[in-house]
Design a protein around this nucleic acid. Sequence first.
DNA 1: AATGAATGAGATTTCATTCAT
DNA 2: AATGAATGAAATCTCATTCAT
Lengths: 221, 221, 221, 221
Amino acid sequence: MNAAKTSETGSRSSPRGRIDKRQAILDAAFRVFARDGYGQSCVREIADEARVAKPTVYNHLGDKETLFHEALQAAVGRTVDRSLAALDKLRGSEGDLRATLEEVGHLLLQNHCCAESQALRRLLNAEAARFPDLLNEIQSAGAQRIQNALADRLARLALAKRLNIADPEQASEQFLALLTGPMELRSRLGTRQVPDTELRSVAGAARDTFLLAYAPQGEAD
Amino acid sequence: MNAAKTSETGSRSSPRGRIDKRQAILDAAFRVFARDGYGQSCVREIADEARVAKPTVYNHLGDKETLFHEALQAAVGRTVDRSLAALDKLRGSEGDLRATLEEVGHLLLQNHCCAESQALRRLLNAEAARFPDLLNEIQSAGAQRIQNALADRLARLALAKRLNIADPEQASEQFLALLTGPMELRSRLGTRQVPDTELRSVAGAARDTFLLAYAPQGEAD
Amino acid sequence: MNAAKTSETGSRSSPRGRIDKRQAILDAAFRVFARDGYGQSCVREIADEARVAKPTVYNHLGDKETLFHEALQAAVGRTVDRSLAALDKLRGSEGDLRATLEEVGHLLLQNHCCAESQALRRLLNAEAARFPDLLNEIQSAGAQRIQNALADRLARLALAKRLNIADPEQASEQFLALLTGPMELRSRLGTRQVPDTELRSVAGAARDTFLLAYAPQGEAD
Amino acid sequence: MNAAKTSETGSRSSPRGRIDKRQAILDAAFRVFARDGYGQSCVREIADEARVAKPTVYNHLGDKETLFHEALQAAVGRTVDRSLAALDKLRGSEGDLRATLEEVGHLLLQNHCCAESQALRRLLNAEAARFPDLLNEIQSAGAQRIQNALADRLARLALAKRLNIADPEQASEQFLALLTGPMELRSRLGTRQVPDTELRSVAGAARDTFLLAYAPQGEAD
DNA sequence: AATGAATGAGATTTCATTCAT
DNA sequence: AATGAATGAAATCTCATTCAT
C-alpha cells in the first residue's frame, strides 16, 4: 500500500528498486484479490495496479498461485503482529483487569474488523478448499498463535489469582469467540465497516460475560 | 443425483418433470460451486453433473449468476430449517435447562459443521463482495433469523426466571458466538470434519460459560 | 483442400455439415503445418484458414497436438493409398518387366515428390523427436507397408524366375532406396519441385541398376 | 560443456576467452535446437545451457535466426569433414576394391547415423521452408560435396578399369542412395540408434548390389 | 563484455452464451 | 423442451528482445 507510494519516489534507479517493485506487486495483488476474489482477479489487472508490465509479475512471483500465497502471507504477518501487540497489554498482573480486558478486546476487534483483516478472512474462506496448505500455514501462524498467546496471559492471571480458570486454552478460545463471533453477522461477512462504538459495545459485553464466568467470587463486579 | 433419475420417469410432459429437472440442476450447481468456487466452476460441469445439456441449464435458470443465487438460496433454506427445528427444543420453560441448552447447542453445532453449511459459508464469504444483495438476503433469512429465534426463547426463559438476562439479543448473540466462534479454527475454515465428541465438548463449554454468566444466583450449578 | 471448397457449397445446413467442418479443419491444419512447421503454426491461423472460429477447432480436435496427429494421419492415408495402387501394376508375372519396373518406379517417385508427401516427410522429420508415437504409427502404416508390399511382389517374381532374388525384403529396400535416395538432394529436402523428366530419369536409372543386380543371367539386357 | 569450463580460465581478456564463449554458445544452441526444434527452443534455455546470461547470447550472435544459422553451419562442417575423410580411403586404384567399398560405405553410414548428423538432418527438414537460403548453403556444402567427391573417386576407378561406369555422377548418387536410403526407415527418422551390425549389413548389401551393377564382367564376384 | 530486470506481442486454451434443429 | 455446434471475449503464461548498470 504505502510501499507503492514509496516506489513512486525514485523508482527509477534506487538500489532497492527490486524490493520496492516486488512489494508493489504484492500490495497490488492483495488489493485486487481482496476486491475481486482469486478466480475473478486477472494478472493483467494486478500488473496494471502495480504499474508494471505483466511479465514482470511472472518474473518476480512465478505464477498466479504463488502470487496469491505470498500476498496473503504478507498480509497475515501484518495483522498478526498488530494483534500480538494488543495482547501485550495483558502482561503484568496488576492494574484494573476489568478495564484492561475491555481495552484489549477492543483493540483485537478493531484489528479483526479492519479492511485488511476482513479481506484476508474472506479470501481464506473462499479458497480454503483450493489451497489447503496455505490455509494450514496461515491459520497456525495466525489465529492459532493469537489464541495461544492469550492463553498464556490468562494462565498467568490465573496463577496470580486474578482469574479463576481451570483450562486456559478454553478460556482463551471463548474470550475470542465472544469478541469475533458476533462480527460475522454485524459486519455482513466483512463487507460492512462496523462503527467503532459498536465494536466497543461488543468488547464490553464480551468482557462482562467473560468475567461473570471466570472472575473469582469476590472480584466479579 | 437421484433427482436426475427421478426425472427420467416421465420427463416428457408431467408437471413434476420440469420441477425435477430444475431441482436436479440446482443440486448439481450447488455441488459444483461448493467444490470449485463460483469463478472456477463452469456451466458445462454443472450441466454434466446434472446429466443435462448446457443450453438446458440456460433455459431453466437464465444465466450463471441467477443459477448461483438460486442454488444458494435453496441450500440456505435447508440449513436454516434444521437450525430452527433444533431451537424448538427450547420451547416451554420447564425441564432440565442445563441439559437442554447443551443438547440444543450440540444440534446447532452439528448443523453448523455439516458439509452443506460449511460449503455455503465458504461460498458466501468468497462472493460477498461480488453479490452484496445475495449476501443480505441470505444473512437476514439465515443467521439473523436463527439469532432472533434464540433471542425469543431466551426472553421467555428470562420471564420465567429461569435465566437472568437483561438483553436477550445480546445473550443470544453470545451463546451462538460461544458455539460457532471456536469452530472457525477447529474446522480449519470448514475444510476439516470435526469429530462429534469435539462438538459435544464445545457445546458443553459454551453452556457452562453461558450459565455462569446468565443463570440466576441459586441455579448456577 | 478440396473438402474446404466443397464445404463452401452448402455449408449452411447440409446434414453432413459437421463432417465437412471437421475435414475442413484437418485440411487447413495440414496446409498451415506444412507451410510453417508445428511450432510456428498457431491455431488462430488454422482456424482462419478453415473459415471457422478458434474454439471450433478445439471442440472438434481437442488440442494442438491432437490436431497435428489427425492431420498427419489423414495425409499419410492418402499418400500410402496412392503408392499401394502403383504397386498393383506389378501383380501378374507376365509382360514386359523392364517397362513395368520403370513405370512403377516413376509412379512411386511422383507420389514421393508430390507437394503433400514432401510436406508430410518434412513435418515428420521435424517433429520426430517430439512425437515418437506418432512417428511409429505413421511409419509402420506408411513406408513400412509399402516396402512390404513391394517385397511381396518381388517374391512372386522370383518364384516365377523373372528375378533372381534371395532376400526379397532387401531387394525391396534397395529398389526404393534407388528411387527415393536421390530425391533428398534433388528436391532440396522437398522445397524444390522436381520436374517430371528428372523423375523419369531417376526411375530409369534405378530400374537399370536393379535389373543388373537382380535379373537372371539371360534376361539382363 | 567443457568449453564453458575452459572459458572460466582467463575469461577476462584473453583472445581465446571470447572465442571460447562464442563456441560454448554455439554448442549449447545446437544441443538445444537438436533437442527441441527451432520453434520450441527458447533463448533462455540456450543461455542456461551455455552457462551465460541471456543478453550475452544476443551480444555474441545477434538474434535467434543468426544463432540457428551459425550453429547449423558449424555442425555441418564437422560432419562433412568426417565423410570426406572416409572417402579418402578410395584414393589409389589398387587394393581390394570389394573390401574398400564396404569399409567406406560403413564409415559413411556411421557418420550418417551419428547423433549429430541425425539431429542436423531433422533440423534442416524442419526449417527448410523457413530458411531456404540456409538449406541451399548447407546442402551444397554438405551432401552435394560428398556426392561430388565420391563421383571423382569412381571416375578414377573407371579410368583404371576397375569399374564399368558410364556416368560417375549417377553411380555416386546410387551408391549413396543404397547406403542412406534404407536408414530412413531403420533409424525411425533418426530417433532410433541403429546398431553397428545393422549398419555393416546394409553397407555390405549396398556394395554387393553396386558391384553387380558396375563391376566389369570378369571381376563381378 | 556481461548481466538482472523489464516489456510488447502473441501463444494456447477455456468459458459463458447463443443458434438452428 | 432439449440439444449439438459454434463463437466472441478473455485468461494464463511464454518468448524474443532491449535497457541500465
